[in-house]
Computed example of a mutant assay.
Amino acid sequence: MKIADLITWFEAWANPAWCESWDNCGWQIEPGVLQEKARVLVCLTPTLAVMQEAIALHANLIFAHHPLIFNPLKSLRTGEAIAEMLRLSFSHNIGIYTAHTNFDQVQDGTADVLAQILELKEVTPIVPTQGGLGYGRVGLLEPFLTLQELLAAIQTRLAPPNLIFSPSADLQQTISRVAVLGGSGASYISSVAKTGAQAYLTSDCKFHQFQESRDCNLILIDAGHYATERPACDRLAQKFHSLNLDWVQLSQKDEDFRQFFA
C-alpha cells in the first residue's frame, strides 16, 4: 500500500477536520513520500530519538499521536529540535503525520482502548461529538471491583511508573462505573461527574484538580500521560498490520519524559 492510500484510509476513519481549533492534525512534514510503499513507524511523540530509529529501520513514515509542530513557528535554527527533525526528514525522505484530537474521539482511539483495557461494558463517550464518537469513555465494570482491585488492575495493565489517586477512607468500597480519558483529561472532571462515574482514570492532574474531583464525589486516578496513551499507539500499529503494509512497527524509542526517584 502506498503512503497516500494509507493516509486516505486513515482519514476516512479519523477525519483530521474533527480536530480542535487549537490542535494541529495531519501532515507535519511531507518530503515527497506519498507514492512510496508505506514503511511506517508508529509512535506517541515524534522526537529525535524516534527519527533516528526510523532512519535505522529504513522507515519512510513516522505516524505519531502528538503533533511535532504545535505552536506557530517563528524561526528555524541549527541546533533546535524541530529544525533538526525537518532536516533529517528531508535528507532521509521520512514523512511525519499526526493524528491527535481526531484520534482521541474514534472507536479504537485513545479513550476507547483504555475502556477496552479495563473491560468496561455499555460504554459511551463522556462528551459526545458526532456519530456516536466523542472524548473519553464511561462504562460499567463487570464484575464490580473494589477501589483497591481497580487500582491494582490499572497498575498491572498500564504499568505506570507512578499512580496517583484521590485520598479515600475506604479502599474496599465497590466501584461499578468508571470513566477514562487518555492524556490530559482534568478539564473534563465536571463532565465526568455528570455521568455518574465513581472513578476517573486520566493524567496530568494538578493539586486543585484533585480537590475539584473530591468535591464532585469523584475518585481521580492519574496514571500519567504516556501510560494512558501509549496503548492506543500499539492498537494503531496492529490496525496497520492488518492492511498488509510493506512494513510497520511500534516505536521502541518513545519516551515518557519523566522519571521518579524511589
Results as ranks from 00 to 15, higher is better:
234 D>I: 13
89 S>M: 08
119 E>H: 12
125 P>S: 01
74 K>M: 09
257 F>Y: 06
208 H>R: 07
28 Q>F: 00
59 A>P: 11
152 A>H: 09
128 P>T: 06
147 L>M: 04
242 S>N: 11
143 P>R: 02
152 A>L: 07
123 V>N: 02
204 D>H: 00
157 R>K: 10
25 C>R: 00
38 A>D: 15
236 L>Y: 00
137 R>E: 03
148 Q>H: 05
178 V>Y: 12
188 Y>A: 15
239 K>Q: 14
121 K>E: 13
226 Y>N: 04
137 R>N: 04
94 I>R: 10
153 A>R: 15
255 E>I: 11
19 C>I: 00
161 P>N: 11
90 F>H: 14
34 L>M: 12
248 V>F: 00
59 A>G: 11
184 S>I: 05
91 S>Y: 05
47 T>H: 09
12 A>D: 11
254 D>S: 03
40 V>C: 08
60 N>T: 14
133 L>I: 09
213 S>E: 10
68 L>V: 01
17 A>I: 13
165 F>H: 11
113 V>I: 10
196 G>I: 04
32 G>I: 11
41 L>G: 05
148 Q>W: 01
47 T>D: 08
206 K>R: 14
200 Y>Q: 09
101 T>G: 07
157 R>Q: 07
57 L>V: 12
251 S>L: 04
226 Y>L: 02
100 H>T: 08
255 E>G: 08
163 L>I: 06
85 M>Q: 10
5 D>R: 09
175 I>H: 07
190 S>A: 10
104 D>T: 00
183 G>E: 05
29 I>C: 09
90 F>A: 07
124 T>N: 10
46 P>G: 04
193 A>F: 14
193 A>H: 13
126 I>G: 02
78 T>N: 13
56 A>C: 12
189 I>P: 05
153 A>K: 15
15 N>C: 14
169 A>I: 12
196 G>S: 04
178 V>Q: 11
237 A>Q: 15
261 F>Y: 08
207 F>P: 02
152 A>I: 02
217 N>S: 14
15 N>V: 12
230 R>G: 06
262 A>W: 14
201 L>W: 10
114 L>S: 06
70 F>R: 00
120 L>Y: 09
194 K>I: 03
126 I>R: 01
65 H>W: 04
168 S>T: 15
18 W>Y: 08
16 P>F: 07
222 D>A: 02
75 S>R: 13
177 R>S: 03
216 C>R: 13
14 A>C: 15
230 R>D: 07
100 H>A: 06
57 L>Y: 12
194 K>H: 11
50 V>P: 05
68 L>H: 04
18 W>I: 08
211 Q>L: 15
11 E>C: 14
88 L>I: 15
73 L>V: 02
18 W>E: 00
181 L>Q: 09
10 F>Q: 14
115 A>E: 05
23 D>N: 09
210 F>L: 11
208 H>P: 05
243 L>A: 06
